[in-house]
Design a protein around this nucleic acid. Structure first.
Length: 946
RNA sequence: UGCCGCUUAGCUCAGGAGUAGAGCAGUCGGUUGAUAACCGACAGGCCGCUGGUGCGAAUCCAGCAGCGGCGACCA
């Protein structure tokens, strides 16, 4: 053996086709395509038959425009939940859905094809547009690695769903919750429709404010006013009740003035006559009016009741009504009341006996004054405001005008200011009781909230207070692209047709076949025959929030895959609804009300909420700030896997911040996890668990300890997953890879894996442990790092005739039990403490250039009695634990171990790199040590601990 | 304006009355048999601010600030 021997080739070095770099952006689309081609979702369903179902019912995104980061977060979290439940042994079904009716699509169609299209034309264009948007978003969702029944998603515009919604409407009506009422409702002039609470958002708006004087009507009223102020006569000259408003456009509809019964009102003498103002507001008002004034008399608001003033420019009387809602914060303490355009105004006027017919409503649905309105007919109300101010001024009634910035309701679709407008609408009454219920709908909903689990817990208080305070739900819309409210009203009485339930079913059957468009074609005669002459057909549509709010019934209960067995005759609840926190007033809310109206309980057992995405500074994402992060771009550069890991590593209960730096950190985390898994793969490449695995009892001690750490990790992570806490789970995995594996077990293990006999017990024991760790970790990361887990799985279990196997067809790994867990934990906890002292000391020696690699060092550990016993118990294997060439133990003077490091004086074994006295002891192999000779040609070294 | 939540190292997050923690990033070094990887050491924090109760507060209490959310009839 004179020739140089290639000992390196005798080592068992890592070997794997699994690349170090994921090349995610490029390779992910292949996985996605493969999942689709192999019908993975269906295979999982097949395999899970008979297991308990876990239903995460998808909240339908609105079918409009490409997805943004918020959509991505939501879908990824849903996917992580579903997969974690699937791996936990459930049949975790996921049927994605889309919200397809409603304004944005209708607006889109109007923009592109013009207004005033024939209804059926509009609807077919809307349907086609919605369909295209569903496809667009679907592709983006699939690209994120989300598994679901993408071939059979639900759409609220499916004929069957539309029909089911009409039946649900019938159900709610049948239970007695629906009524028609004349009320002020939120109104958007751009929608030309009523809006629900959830469709209104507050934005800053600058309004024109005016202070307007309403002159006292006549001598009779002057006397009453004098009396109210305890005067015998009202002083001569003009007398005004002065009001302040931020909505001059409501002045033409003014029909009353409101004062607070308890407040003091002053009669103030000024150069412009006598003014009635709240006493507390006098000084400030006079200042703004630039007037000197003197309080002549004081009266309680109560005394002013029903005294009549005159409208500033119309020949009309405006009486004083009492209102508790009047405040003294701003204004004059007197509020002008236009019952058609304010909730309080409406209520107080009704209380004073005003009939519906008496309420003036000169503003049309499009925001213009009716042509019949004197002075301003045909004008847009916002544009008319300066004119109104001028008119008031010309009438000598204007005391002040200025601009005022305040928070004001806006349409969340159009972003334009909304108003309250009194119209006849259909409502679901919050405080109504069904015939067989002793609780009101509101009470039912509150009780249902109590019975629901919230993640995080504060969601409960939030939804509770919303439901407790919300007004009745206005469910009718004056639009076309929506589920019709197919009612017939009696022309004289305004009553619903007595056979409404039956008629609804007839319409539902038609809709089931022809879609909601059919309502446009159905004539009154067709359904009512001879009665037709007495009935009007309603053309309102339903609020889209009812579409999505009813999906637990129209979709979940109607889709066999989503239906869980029910034990009480009512459809089973979903296990979970998971949406952004804005859905407390959206889908969580509407679903709760519809479900309580129909079934008297919530449609879900648990609610999970996540926050919104913000940038690194915590600012909201907005196009104008230029801080938006586009999911498609991340998928195409870093890979969707990075976005998934970002979601998994972020505490989603608050805001989720994302930025380039944050993503960079996520990429680092990804590499760490990926490379650890790669090492496990590479060192078990020649290991066939079915043939080579050793029972735990035959492993070396440190292998059992590694198994113990893995068992603890898996338990911890699964406990977190159970509570939908992915961030701490993923962080634990990351730490496990760095600390327990990279920094300890794997580092120590390399010598044994590489140098001992390929099939030796020592090596097979290590591989047995690595096998279990790999199995466990791969499945633990799979919910979040789905692509990577699948790639690992394909490496572990190569393709069968059916293509590569999927990790998602499996469950979390069942780790073998460990008998001596407690003892192992104690031993190695102390060992690691001693080890960190040793590594620090070796580092010191390295700095002094005494040693380079730790294998150049020999250490002596001077320790106390207990530690001595511990360390000696490792016998000859002790050095392996410290990755030194030798490790001895001696009695130390102190309790704390003292480590002595010296460079080895022996030669370095060419093969195992240990410095040993027996290098060259075998003359046939002069450059390697006795240990290597034995491992290569003899019985192999005996190891028991490491 | 009211209520709720958050505020700990450059980043993501733990901890929760008793001498500040992890991972990643940074710096330095080792290794070159996980190599665009791996190992080690080091450095880095008035634990948002101000008070209070404790022997002792990042931790409990009060107030304030910033950020976020929700609510609000400002006619």
């Amino acid at each position: 053996m004179d020739q140089k021997v290639d000992y390196k080739s005798t080592l068992n070095l890592p070997d794997t086709p699994f690349p170090m770099r994921g090349d995610l952006a490029k390779r992910e689309p292949n996985w996605v395509a493969e999942w689709q081609q192999r019908k993975l979702y269906e295979k999982i369903r097949e395999k899970s038959k008979g297991r308990p179902k876990f239903i995460l019912h998808d909240g339908p995104p609105y079918a409009n425009a490409a997805i943004h980061i918020g959509h991505a977060v939501n879908k990824i979290l849903k996917d992580v939940v579903v997969k974690s439940k699937q791996l936990a042994g459930y049949d975790a079904v996921y049927v994605p859905g889309w919200d397809c009716h409603g304004m944005p699509i209708e607006i889109f169609v109007e923009k592109n094809h013009g207004k005033n299209l024939p209804p059926e034309k509009l609807m077919s264009l809307a349907r086609a547009h919605a369909e295209s948007q569903v496809e667009l978003q679907k592709a983006d969702f699939i690209r994120l690695g989300v598994l679901g029944d993408w071939d059979h998603p639900y759409k609220t515009m499916n004929f069957a769903t539309e029909a089911a919604e009409i039946r649900a409407l019938g159900g709610i009506l049948g239970r007695g919750y629906i009524y028609r009422g004349l009320k002020p409702v939120n109104w958007c002039f751009d929608c030309q429709s009523a809006l629900a609470e959830a469709e209104v958002e507050y934005e800053d708006k600058t309004s024109i404010t005016i202070d307007v004087g309403f002159p006292i009507v006549d001598d009779g009223e002057r006397d009453k006013l004098a009396k109210a102020f305890g005067l015998t006569n009202l002083p001569d000259g003009p007398t005004f009740a002065v009001i302040w408003t931020t909505t001059p456009w409501t002045i033409p509809a003014n029909q009353a003035l409101n004062v607070h019964p308890e407040f003091d009102y002053a009669l103030v003498a000024t150069s412009r006559g006598h003014l009635v103002l709240a006493k507390e507001r006098v000084d400030e008002c006079l200042k703004t009016y630039n007037l000197e004034g003197k309080v002549v008399a004081i009266a309680k608001g109560l005394a002013l009741e029903r005294i009549a003033f005159r409208h500033p420019f119309y020949d009309r009387v405006s009486p004083v009504f009492l209102g508790e809602y009047v405040t003294l914060d701003t204004g004059t303490g007197i509020v002008h009341s236009s019952p058609a355009y304010g909730v309080d105004d409406f209520n107080s006027c009704k209380r004073y006996g005003m009939t519906n017919d008496e309420i003036l409503n000169p503003v049309m649905g499009n925001g213009q004054y009716a042509s019949t309105l004197p002075l301003f007919g045909g004008l847009n109300i916002w544009k008319a405001q300066p004119e109104i101010v001028k008119t008031i001024e010309a009438a000598g009634a204007l005391f002040q005008t200025s601009n005022f910035k305040h928070s004001y309701p806006h349409c969340w679709r159009h972003k334009t200011p909304t108003v309250f407008r009194t119209t006849a609408q259909w409502f679901i009454g919050m405080d109504l009781k069904a015939k067989d219920e002793d609780k009101t709908l509101r009470e039912l909903a509150l009780a249902a909230i109590d019975a629901t689990n919230f993640y995080p817990a504060w969601g409960k208080a939030r939804l509770h207070s919303m439901i407790a305070h919300r007004p009745d739900w206005c469910i009718s819309r004056q639009r076309k692209w929506g589920t019709p409210i197919p009612f017939f009203l009696h022309k004289e009485t305004g009553e619903l047709h007595p056979r409404t339930a039956e008629l609804l079913e007839q319409v539902a059957q038609r809709v089931e076949k022809e879609g909601i468009e059919v309502w446009q074609r159905i004539t009154v005669e067709e359904l009512l025959g001879a009665e037709a002459a007495h009935y009007d057909k309603i053309n309102d549509t339903l609020d889209v929030w009812l579409d999505s709010g009813a999906t637990f019934r129209t979709v979940m209960a109607a889709t066999p895959a989503l239906a869980k067995p029910s034990n009480d005759g009512k459809p089973a609840q979903a296990d979970l609804y998971l949406e952004g926190s804005d859905q407390h007033r959206g889908w969580f809310h509407s679903s709760l009300l519809v479900s309580c109206a129909l079934d008297g309980r919530a449609p879900y057992e648990s609610l999970l909420t996540h926050g919104f995405t913000v940038d690194a500074q915590g600012r909201k994402m907005s196009k104008s700030l230029g801080n938006t992060v586009v999911p498609q771009k991340i998928s195409d550069t870093l890979g969707a896997e990075i976005l998934r890991l970002w979601a998994g590593l972020t505490d989603y209960s608050g805001e989720l911040s994302i930025s380039d730096e944050i993503l960079k950190r996520v990429v680092e985390s990804y590499r760490r996890i990926r490379n650890t898994l790669r090492f496990l793969l590479a060192n078990t490449a020649d290991f066939d668990a079915t043939k080579d695995a050793l029972p735990v009892e035959d492993w070396l001690e440190i292998d059992r300890y590694a198994l113990l750490l893995t068992t603890e990790l898996q338990k911890k992570v699964l406990d977190h997953y159970e509570k939908f806490e992915f961030q701490p789970g993923m962080q634990a995995i990351q730490n496990f890879c760095s600390e327990d594996l990279g920094g300890f077990y794997l580092d120590i293990l390399k010598d044994r894996l590489y140098t001992t006999g390929t099939q030796s017990r020592s090596r097979r024991a290590a591989q047995s442990a690595l096998h279990h760790i790999l199995q466990s970790l791969t499945k633990l990361i799979a919910p979040v790092l789905s692509f990577t887990a699948e790639e690992i799985w394909a490496t572990i279990s190569p393709s069968g005739p059916d293509g590569p196997e999927s990790v998602f067809l499996h469950q979390y790994h069942a780790l073998p039990p460990i008998r001596d867990a407690e003892m192992l934990g104690a031993r190695y906890t102390r060992l690691k403490a001693i080890r960190s002292i040793a590594t620090a000391t070796i580092e010191g020696a390295r700095e002094q250039k005494l040693v380079g690699s730790s294998l150049q060092a020999e250490i002596d550990l001077a320790v106390g009695e207990a530690d001595m016993k511990l360390l000696q118990s490792f016998g000859d294997d002790l050095k392996f634990l410290f990755i030194t060439s030798a490790a001895t133990v001696s009695a130390g003077a102190t309790h704390e171990p003292v480590v002595l490091v010296k460079p080895s004086t022996h030669s370095k074994c060419e093969r195992c790199w240990h410095y040993r006295a027996d290098v060259g002891s075998n003359t046939e192999h002069p450059t390697i040590c006795g240990r290597c000779v034995s491992n290569l040609f003899g019985e192999g070294e005996k190891r028991f601990y490491a």
